[in-house]
Nucleic acid binder design. Structure first.
Length: 860
RNA sequence: GCCCCCGUGGCCCAACUGGUAGAGGCACCCGGCUCAGACCCGGGACGGUGAUGGUUCGACUCCAUCCGGGGGUACCA
């Protein structure tokens, strides 16, 4: 499948023999790994918890993994890149908190348990142990004193505690609603967890179900989630900010109240209803005069209500239609080009501005849970309404005179079939006639408000976050249902509500929580009245666990508070968060919401949890996502065995911009290993002593060293890791040249350059760097060596090459002083032979001088 | 359909944000080392920046249109 297949087992390709100068040393990646790992275990260079540590603090965080099996190539990329950032700031003299933990609750453990009859707990902890060992070998710069697993009762106790806090404040509540249901996982899903109508986890088409579920009131924070994004501008990828904005989907509009006329079908077995007010939401109240019909969502309570007073035939038709819609999968429902369907309820709504009676339809293109689940339909100016009007032969009334680019009126939507959504002067709209959109909107809102029939409003696409799950492996919701007291929180001092052992429970998904089967666990005394009561049997969405874990890292062992407030003040917010773009909405939105809620409770003093965000791309093979079924799986363990940890890490950093996907077939871990061997040999060759006076060394090499270190800072801080690596390669090449054909291995500049290489490489290839550092005569750890100090004087060169162009084409080059004046440079340039030749006998129009790098002579 | 990003040697990618198109790597070719191969060392070839037009003394970089690729979103009224 890859170049790895070409390497026979037992013949590691990273063993590169040095033969040109007769030395026997060779670069042996595996041996170096074995040598330094125990040393680091002892020296623990990345401990961050010493209260006496004088270094300034910085929090760098990698998204914590889900423990399903061992680490894979995706982890390897993420942790390689996160490590560059963390290790860089350590070299810059910061006390970096770089913790790791496990997002350890969730369905994979449970599914594995069901499939293979294992205990989800045991399965999870085994995987964690394996991943932890792999991370250690991968030389991740984690602070191993700060580790957490969300499935530990010590952790989820605080999950429950936070749930209680939310519940106290009305941010956690239970209500019945149409919810997303995954038939495969047999549990409900939050809106964010439905991707294109499919379950985010298992790609099963999601259906709807009416259930009473627990929600977090995230919608209360919609405005702040939106507005606070301005603080993240420039420090988060634009893409993520855009996705969150779209997801929250704020829109400005108006509520308009229509009257639905009463009806009496008691003779027909139906109901009798008086006139009633029904409010709709619209972003185009200006088009109110163009409303020719009215639509309610077929699956809304309103529709059910209205149809009750419809004739029997309509009621029957409605019931059939509703059933059909319910059976339609979300994925079908999402396809926009399907025909509009609906049922005329034989009820009528009265337009509040002109008293027109318009027919009321129930249809599935109106959503029950957005706005008021009902709309006024303006077919002339809304494509969806027009499609419906055409399907049902309803009138189309133009109320906006929309002109094309040529100033001509656009064709009549009734004829063209295309609604005119643009702006223009109002027509057929009584008092609004002649007004432009904005004026018309304020006029109509004012008019309606005067009669109490309308007002400006804001709507959001964002829905409350459904957090209950009907599965076993999660944090139990700490609520007791008491026949006398209702919903009662389990008192904080009785937390955690521990999960009952899985033994004896039927974990198979069956639509209700397996916890219901743990009778001893379910039946409890009501904490309030002491009477018999029952525990809530649902568990929390695992995204709850990950919405605050970054806070827990400051004090993972505290058992009296979820996190130490003083330490949070010192360390938070996370300065650099690193992870995949798959969480652009889900996790990042939830974590932002939690942070704001905790802020309002006075528990944290900031409102955004992650001030910087880096999204790494994916690792692909042959242009597609790796998977067993595709047969293009590249195993991390194979790569590490074949090329060594450092070569794999370096390859991840060197492959290209971090946010781009890496196609493993386009990169060369073998090439990385080759480069590391070249760098490593420099350290073997250095012949000057530690601490040698470098000022006498080869100036050209010294300049390059200092320039490289200088540029590397900016590049790392801008996540241009691939460019940094290229610069280090250049420096290695230049140093080799000086050793072989220049001043030789004893030149102090060679030592200076090689030490710089070791320190720069310590961000990418820690084992090689450590071994170089040792060969150079230093004690471990190179990770703490400190960033080389740049001598400003060496950043300026004594001459620069000035390009002399004639009519934009390069005709000559001059070596000039960087401080040359424009006039002097102009003189020199005009006298240059290349210029004279190119100019011939033509005159000169202008001379553009950009000292000291460029002169452009423009001929007449 | 709408919005965003990206097109640079055979491939992955640089280019001080308007100033010499090429830094680095992969692959390839030649030479050295070798009994030979691998490794290593030295050297080399390759494109004018997706297309067209515009702005400019000067465009990979800015603008317009188009082509190609990727991503997001999609009955949200």
């Amino acid at each position: 499948m890859t170049q790895t297949d070409a390497t026979p087992a037992g013949a590691p390709s990273e063993s590169i023999t040095e033969s040109t100068d007769g030395r026997a040393e060779r670069f042996d990646a595996q041996a170096i790994q074995e040598r330094w790992l125990p040393v680091w275990d002892e020296k623990t260079p990345f401990r961050s918890g010493d209260p006496a540590d004088p270094r300034p603090k910085k929090y760098v965080l990698d998204m914590f993994p889900y423990p399903s099996g061992d680490l894979h190539m995706g982890h390897a990329e993420a942790y390689a890149l996160g490590d560059v950032v963390a290790r860089y700031w350590v070299q810059r003299g910061f006390n970096v908190m770089h913790p790791i933990g496990w997002d350890a609750f969730g369905l994979p453990a449970e599914n594995a348990a069901i499939k293979r009859g294992l205990d989800p707990r045991a399965w999870t902890y085994e995987n964690i142990a394996q991943q932890k060992a792999s991370m250690r070998r991968y030389a991740c710069s984690f602070d191993w004193d700060r580790v957490l697993q969300t499935c530990d009762p010590e952790y989820y106790k605080w999950n429950q505690w936070l749930f209680n806090k939310f519940h106290e404040r009305g941010l956690a509540y239970r209500r019945p609603s149409q919810v997303n249901w995954c038939p495969n996982d047999q549990t409900v899903l939050a809106n964010e967890q439905v991707v294109n109508g499919l379950c985010e986890r298992c790609d099963t088409p999601v259906t709807k179900k009416k259930l009473t579920q627990w929600y977090f009131r995230i919608t209360e924070y919609a405005d702040r989630l939106l507005d606070d994004m301005s603080q993240l501008e420039g420090r988060w990828p634009d893409k993520v900010l855009t996705m969150q904005r779209n997801w929250i989907g704020r829109s400005q509009g108006a509520d308009v109240t229509f009257v639905i006329e009463g009806a009496d079908t008691t003779a027909d077995g139906g109901a009798q209803q008086a006139d009633r007010d029904v409010t709709v939401y619209t972003t185009r109240p200006d088009t109110l005069f163009g409303a020719t019909f009215f639509v309610v969502a077929v699956d809304s309570d309103l529709a059910a209500d209205l149809v009750a007073a419809s004739p029997a035939a309509v009621r029957a038709e409605f019931a059939t239609y509703l059933e059909k819609v319910r059976g339609t999968s979300e994925i079908e429902r999402l396809s926009t080009d399907r025909e509009k369907t609906g049922v005329f309820l034989q009820r009528f709504a009265v337009n509040p501005v002109n008293g027109e009676k318009i027919p009321v339809y129930a249809a599935d293109y109106v959503l029950a849970d957005y706005g008021h689940g009902a709309i006024m339909a303006v077919p002339a100016h809304d494509q969806r309404d027009l499609d419906f009007a055409k399907a049902f032969g309803l009138p189309v009334k133009v109320v906006v005179d929309v002109r094309g680019e040529d100033g001509e009126p656009l064709p009549d939507p009734a004829v063209s079939g295309t609604a005119t959504a643009g702006v223009g002067a109002m027509v057929n709209s009584g008092p609004l006639d002649g007004l432009q959109k904005a004026e018309a909107i304020s006029a109509i809102v004012e008019l309606l408000a005067g009669k109490g029939l309308g007002k400006e409003t804001t709507n959001y696409r964002l829905r409350d976050w459904l957090i209950s799950r009907q599965r076993y492996w999660g944090a139990p919701i700490p609520i007791v249902h008491c026949p006398a007291c209702g919903e009662v929180r389990v008192p904080d001092d009785q937390l955690p509500v521990e999960l009952p052992p899985s033994e004896g429970l039927d974990l198979k998904p069956k639509g209700t929580s397996p916890l219901g089967g743990a009778t001893d666990w379910v039946n409890v005394d009501c904490p309030q009245c002491g009477g018999p009561a029952q525990r809530d049997t649902d568990t929390m969405d695992t995204f709850v666990d990950s919405s605050w874990y970054f806070l827990r890292f400051v004090s993972p062992d505290r058992d009296d508070v979820p996190f130490d407030p003083e330490l949070v003040r010192q360390w938070l917010p996370v300065e650099q968060y690193v992870g995949g773009v798959t969480h652009a909405i889900l996790h990042l939105l939830y974590a932002r919401f939690f942070t704001k809620a905790l802020h309002d409770m006075g528990m944290v003093d900031f409102v955004e949890p992650f001030t910087g965000l880096l999204n790494q791309g994916m690792v692909l093979m042959d242009g597609s996502v790796m998977s067993k079924s595709r047969g293009n799986l590249v195993r991390l363990s194979d790569q590490l065995a074949d090329h060594g940890v450092d070569a794999v890490r370096l390859t991840m950093a060197f492959a290209g911009p971090p946010e781009d996907d890496i196609d493993w077939k386009d990169v060369s871990p073998a090439g990385s290993a080759r480069f590391l061997a070249r760098a490593w040999r420099l350290a073997q060759d250095v012949a000057s002593p530690v601490g040698v006076d470098v000022s006498t060394g080869d100036v050209a090499l010294r300049r390059q060293t200092h320039r490289t270190v200088h540029e590397a800072s900016t590049l790392v801080e801008g996540f241009r890791f691939n460019v940094v690596v290229a610069k280090v390669m250049e420096l290695v090449n230049a140093t080799r040249k000086v050793i072989d054909s220049g001043a030789g291995p004893a030149d102090p500049a060679v030592r200076e350059a090689t030490e710089a290489v070791a320190i720069l490489l310590s961000l990418f290839a820690p084992y090689t760097a450590e071994d170089m550092w040792s060969a150079l005569g230093h004690e471990p750890c190179v990770a703490l060596a400190g960033w080389p100090v740049v001598e400003e004087g060496l950043l300026v060169t004594e001459t620069v090459t000035c390009v002399v162009q004639v009519a934009g084409k390069v005709r000559d080059r001059l070596e000039v002083s960087p401080s040359i004046t424009e006039d002097a440079l102009r003189e020199l340039a005009l006298a240059a032979p290349g210029v004279q030749k190119a100019l011939g006998d033509k005159g000169i129009r202008t001379v553009v001088v950009r000292a000291p790098k460029l002169v452009n002579v423009v001929p007449a």
